[in-house]
């Protein structure tokens, strides 16, 4: 099934960008096309063909970006691939894929609460999720590098 990913690369949706140790292929994409990509994945791999392992959000303070890594495990070989995108740090917004893949609920909620990335179209986003009330009032996102907690 992994060759289906290469098709997406050929169509220009994804761009190869090296590997993450050990041996996880890294693809970059434009954050505006996220729904398109996951729709394609659902179409080509099928509902049973992959699962979303997690989304890792990292604050890249120097580049003024927030990096989002979507880790997708392609079945049945269980190959992990990484779909990486960047959103603007001052205005972090990306489309939600919750309605396509319900498994995105937990990571999207977590990243919204910790890093402040808004997933447009996710009805479950709410603060405070687990961050203490006083931090929410101050508008602090704890995992941002300039946050003092």
């Amino acid at each position: 099934m992994i060759e289906k990913i290469d098709e997406l690369v050929n169509e220009g949706l994804l761009k190869e960008a090296g590997i993450i140790k050990p041996n996880r292929k890294l693809y970059e994409f434009n954050h505006e096309r996220i729904r398109e990509i996951f729709k394609q994945l659902l179409e080509r791999l099928g509902e049973k063909g992959f699962y979303l392992a997690t989304i890792v959000g990292t604050d890249m303070l120097k580049d003024k970006k927030i990096r989002l890594d979507y880790y997708v495990v392609v079945l049945p070989e269980e190959i992990t691939i990484v779909l990486r995108t960047y959103v603007d740090r001052d205005n972090p917004e990306i489309n939600s894929i919750l309605d396509l893949i319900p498994a995105a609920l937990a990571p999207e909620c977590e990243i919204y609460d910790l890093l402040g990335v808004v997933f447009k179209g996710n009805p479950a986003l709410r603060r405070p999720f687990f961050v203490p009330e006083e931090l929410v009032e101050k508008g602090i996102y704890p995992l941002r590098k300039d946050a003092r907690v």
Binding site: L105, A106, C109, E110, D113, L114, P123, A124, R126, P128, F129, F130
Partner: peptide, 10 residues
């Protein structure tokens, strides 16, 4: 340990 609320539908 880290997450909180699920709201399935409104």
């Amino acid at each position: 340990e880290r997450l909180t609320i699920i709201d399935l539908k409104t």
